[in-house]
């Protein structure tokens, strides 16, 4: 499903060149739950952004379902992103001026889902994530856990094939962190492919495969207990 071949990413700032990713080769199969680990600055978020077509690689090939997507235009990337991916961020990235309900509704607006259908699906998802009573709240009126729940709800509303989560529990306490990981596991069990960047070994061990990055290189891959149990 996802295949990265010799992916490199270089950031340039004036005379300074920073190599964030070096010759990454990676495959993720349909329905997998993969975590990416590594120290700060090792390129985890850069890798996730490239997989989610938020950023383009500096070199290398990225094939999604066999189709080369690393060289498509921004317009086409938007379409591919819209139809395949959803994102969950460490800092939630909710829009401050929209209520919880409106934030969740947003992806459906961009997919041009009719309004009645949108309302039905948003209500359904809010119910499922136990957010119904907070639907008219603005992000700054919600707790961190509730904000991340809204972010996850927003991620799943459009029924994406792949969820890319960038340290989704990083800003949360352990209880709320656990809630979020449970939600992700349930989604994966429902068939959604999930790639999660995390610092927490405990969280990573709940996924099927762990990829370790160091200085922009994949240093090792391991299959967790979850996978072993399968």
């Amino acid at each position: 499903m996802i295949e990265l071949i010799d992916i490199c990413k270089v950031f340039r700032n004036k005379d300074v060149e920073t190599k964030a990713l070096s010759n990454i080769n990676l495959s993720v199969a349909d329905g997998e739950f993969v975590s990416i680990m590594g120290p700060s600055g090792c390129g985890k978020t850069s890798l996730l952004n490239i997989i989610g077509l938020i950023d383009l690689p500096s070199s290398g090939k990225y094939l999604l379902d066999g189709q080369l997507v690393s060289e498509v235009s921004e317009r086409n990337r938007t379409d591919i992103r819209k139809n395949n991916f959803a994102f969950v961020f460490q800092s939630f990235n909710l829009i401050d001026d929209l209520t919880a309900w409106e934030n969740i509704e947003l992806p459906l607006v961009y997919q041009k889902v009719p309004q009645a259908e949108r309302a039905r699906r948003v209500d359904q998802v809010m119910e499922r994530f136990n957010l119904k009573h907070r639907s008219n709240y603005f992000p700054n009126e919600l707790s961190g856990g509730q904000q991340q729940s809204v972010a996850v709800a927003r991620a799943v509303i459009a029924k994406p094939r792949i969820i890319l989560a960038d340290e989704p529990t990083g800003n949360l306490d352990s209880t709320h962190g656990e809630d979020i990981i449970q939600q992700l596991i349930q989604l994966n069990e429902g068939g959604t492919t999930i790639i999660m960047v995390t610092h927490s070994m405990m969280m990573a061990q709940r996924t099927q495969r762990i990829i370790y990055l160091f200085d922009g290189h994949v240093v090792t891959e391991s299959y967790s207990k979850v996978n072993a149990n399968l």
């Binding site: 938020i54 938007t78 990235n93 829009i95 401050d96 947003l106 927003r154």
Partner: peptide, 16 residues
Amino acid sequence: TKEIGIRKVLGAGTKE
């Protein structure tokens, strides 16, 4: 700027 980024990630096109 950030909102634009979020919206883009969520599928907003140029027109929107």
